[in-house]
Simulated scan of single mutants.
Amino acid sequence: MNAISTVSRLLLVTTFFLLYSCKEEEKITEMDLLFSSLHDDQAKWWRYHKTNIDLSSDFLPLGEDGDSISKKAFFEALLTGEFIAIEKKSNAARDQYQLFKLTKESDGDISYTISADSYREYKHFTMEGQQFPDFNLKDLDGKTYTKEALLGKTLVVKTWFLNCKPCIEEMPQLNQLVEEYSENKDVVFLSLSLDTKTELQKFLSERKFKYAVVPQQKAFIEDTLGFSIYPTHIIVEPSGKIRKVVNTAPEMIASLKSMNKG
């Protein structure tokens, strides 16, 4: 009888430790709780995503298990529509985003939205490191720009058109940037517009824009570069390779300044 009691007690102790270990492994994290509060409400998730996740930044991508993965693999997971990104809070210099898999209980609209939102950033990411296409462009003042002549310089390009409200609204910020680099002759600011020379000259007679302006570039922008969203900003390294492609002035400015620090 005593032997049986001893065995029973040992079994209970073993079971307790096994259960305790399982609970430790399944410990709920702050990120788990955040995911639980977001994944079944598309509007709530979207507000979080636009406020906290910047897929154009130099973030550290993490897989489902929290291990580092390639940026390509991270984007490809988001493009399936089966995952969302949650920011991992840390003291690291770079933002860290971790993949979380959607469930049957998740709002179905999230899947479509994350896939569509990630596509543009993925396309921009795949352009990084590629050679910027050859060009021979003439600005409104008659000055010619070619890729060959600009090798050895950093080229900052903006695509825009006159009826694009965001394109116009960011001009003061871009003018300030040009001023900051006015003493640096190794950085060239060039803008490609859809509009005609006459239309641009009329606009610029009333509003200052300190980039060099090249008219009627629809074919180069949309066919050669493959862009359909305006504005788009491209930073080209002195080697002629694309460093960064983004859609807002703050993103471009941050990347340019980071590049110069490096």
Rank of each mutant, 00 (worst) to 15 (best):
T159N: 09
Y112G: 07
A92S: 14
F161M: 07
Y48D: 00
F35L: 00
L38T: 11
E105H: 05
T29W: 12
D95W: 04
S56V: 07
K158N: 14
L102R: 03
K153T: 06
Y122W: 08
A43Q: 11
P133M: 02
S57H: 01
E128C: 03
L62S: 01
L33F: 13
E76K: 09
K138P: 05
F59G: 03
M171G: 04
I114L: 06
H39D: 03
D95R: 08
A77H: 10
F161C: 06
D41W: 03
D58Q: 09
N91W: 12
P172F: 07
T144G: 11
T103R: 11
Y122H: 10
L79N: 09
K44L: 08
F83M: 04
G129V: 10
F132G: 12
E64L: 14
K89D: 08
E169D: 14
T126F: 01
S106V: 00
D65L: 15
D109C: 05
Q173F: 13
S37Q: 14
F132V: 12
Y119G: 12
L151D: 08
F132D: 10
S56P: 00
E169P: 02
S106F: 00
F100E: 04
T29Y: 11
T154D: 09
N163V: 02
D109F: 14
A149Q: 10
K143Q: 15
N52P: 00
T29H: 09
D117I: 06
W160R: 07
E170V: 14
S57A: 09
F100V: 10
N136H: 09
D95M: 05
S111K: 09
H39P: 00
P166C: 12
E128H: 01
K147A: 07
S90R: 06
N52C: 01
W46P: 00
W46L: 13
F100S: 04
Y97F: 10
I86S: 04
Q42F: 12
L140K: 08
R120E: 13
S90V: 11
K138F: 06
Y122S: 08
N91Y: 12
F83S: 05
T154P: 14
L60Y: 13
E87F: 01
Y122L: 07
Y122G: 08
T146Q: 14
P166N: 11
D107F: 06
G66I: 13
H49N: 13
